[in-house]
């Protein structure tokens, strides 16, 4: 648990990044000419997937804003925790 699990984990993650991960992240498997329709709007598929990724980043920022908000309120109530 102390040695095998972390190295196994890092090795598998590294192997995935080299074999598949980079292809997926860089959208190498998507045909650049492919077009899609979303709510009657036309996009190239690559643009659309990047827009979806932007949506996910926005969702991450929103969740982190909620985290910041929660700790800010705890600060004002004098709860013991790390600095907001």
């Amino acid at each position: 648990m102390k040695w095998i699990t972390p190295y196994y984990l890092v090795f598998m993650l590294g192997a995935w990044l080299v074999t598949d991960g980079w292809q997926v992240i860089a959208l190498k498997h998507i045909d650049p000419a492919a077009q899609v329709t979303f709510l009657s709007l036309e996009f190239s598929q690559i643009t659309f997937i990047w827009l979806v990724r932007a949506f996910l980043v926005a969702a991450i920022l929103f969740i982190n804003f909620a985290v910041w908000w929660a700790w800010r309120n705890r600060s004002s109530q004098g709860v013991d925790h790390a600095r907001a």
Binding site: L56, A59, I63, N64, V67, A70, W71, A82, R83, A84
Partner: peptide
């Protein structure tokens, strides 16, 4: 995650790192 990492590391960034435990399952 946010509460856990905040308690473990007691650093301002920790709670934000812990947000991974919120958005990963939610996504």
């Amino acid at each position: 995650g946010p509460g856990l990492l905040d308690k473990m590391f007691k650093k301002p960034w920790a709670k934000f790192a812990g947000s991974f435990g919120l958005f990963a399952p939610t996504f």
